[in-house]
Design a protein around this nucleic acid. Structure first.
Lengths: 224, 224
DNA sequence: ATAAATTTTTAGACAAGACTAAAAATATTT
DNA sequence: AAATATTTTTAGTCTTGTCTAAAAATTTAT
């Protein structure tokens, strides 16, 4: 087996790799020092130090003043951390009665536990889930993401329906709103009518009709 | 609520408190610097540094050259870590197909996850187990240990029987021996005959008879 | 195209937690 | 009760990951 598989990464290093992975997913290549600092709530100078170290470990490519991009092995490590994070979130919600807005902090800790057996057994125990409680895809053991065709609830036409598979905004406030109205993953939602004036829509969920604003429907993902 | 409940402890500090707790359980009060260093596989000078810090945080009492002993709050923290360690071990063995000798390293990591809700929900999910896979008692939410009357298998007379509730020796070799002969927690064991010459005994387990040496029977705990 | 603003890097410092080597205190022998 | 051995502490160093302040590079504006 190639040697690099045995290089260990610290908690901090893993967090940097994960942050850079997420930033690349949004803004393409060449992630800036400042963007990483903002994401990790740290200082740009600390980021410079860390990316130099990570570049030496060959998990990212770095040229002074040019930002960074992950190498394949860096990406695999980031995906591994994300896999752990999301599997633990499923565990917390499905087995330990956590609500959507309570899982994140604990999953941030659990994602750094090092044991391949642990995570693969957990995966099996949970029935190989394809997405986490926020609807984000869970990469499989080999780091492959299962593509989900999801669209925003706001894009549905009248009388169309689908299943809630995720959220766009993961803020605590929004998740609490969803809890309050019992909108959760897997719930069937049908659009009854759309109001052109303010973009609000009336939906059928939990056998009851309710009206939601465009801001809400723009933050809920639906799979038809 | 009193302020000291919110003092946070690092991974290292927690490991020191746990080690000292275990040492106090064996050798009473006044745990020596060297004993701690041996237990944690570190140097005596490092221990001195750390116990000074812990004494400042009021979790142990330290006088130069006199060793240390835990305060009540230090003991509570140690018990909390032990509770987490043992509950995770139960989870790993019962839900994730870990064997006795595989759990320790992973539980050493999991025991430092900080979330009261996590551990109390895990406790409930596992059905409030009273002991871990090695037969050691799991303290409850308030830090109280449930006393178990356990005796060594070697102390049973002919025709007496009991349930396996733990082991004395937790070495990997011994646990593998137990796995090989399918001797595990909760198994009923009946003593068929005892051999005075070498102390070996014949037992009935898993509906089969087998002979085990005194060394083995001295390392298995039984509850009648 | 030069000035101003922003971003990034460097230099130096600090806290946590560990280490080595040597000094100080305590224990054990003789 | 000295002498010797052991344990414990101190002093100083190192690494990791962070920080501040200032210098260097790049980008934006005039």
């Amino acid at each position: 087996m190639p040697h690099y598989l045995f290089v260990m990464f610290t908690l901090s290093e893993e967090n940097y790799l994960k942050a850079i992975f997420h930033l690349e997913a949004i803004s393409g290549k060449g992630i800036s020092t400042n963007a990483i600092a903002r994401k990790l709530d740290t200082k740009a100078s600390s980021v410079t130090d860390m990316i130099k170290k990570l570049a030496e470990k060959k998990v990212l490519v770095y040229k002074k003043y040019q930002g960074v991009s992950l190498t394949d092995s860096g990406r695999q490590i980031a995906i591994g951390v994300i896999r752990k994070h999301r599997l633990w979130e499923v565990f917390l919600v499905e087995k330990l009665n956590f609500s959507w807005d309570e899982v994140h902090d604990v999953a941030e800790q659990l994602e750094h536990i090092k044991s391949p057996k642990l995570i693969n057994e957990l995966d099996a125990f949970l029935g190989f889930p394809k997405m986490d409680p926020h609807g984000d895809p869970i990469p499989d053991k080999n780091g492959n993401f299962h593509k989900i065709e999801k669209k925003l609830l706001s894009t549905l036409e009248e009388n169309q329906s689908g299943v809630c598979v995720g959220v766009n905004d993961s803020s605590s406030e929004f998740l609490k709103y969803l809890d309050r109205y019992d909108i959760s993953l897997g719930k069937k939602i049908q659009v009854i009518s759309k109001e052109p004036f303010d973009g609000s829509i009336t939906i059928l969920i939990n056998k009851k009709e309710m009206s939601i604003s465009q801001k809400i429907s723009n933050n809920i993902y639906i799979q038809s």
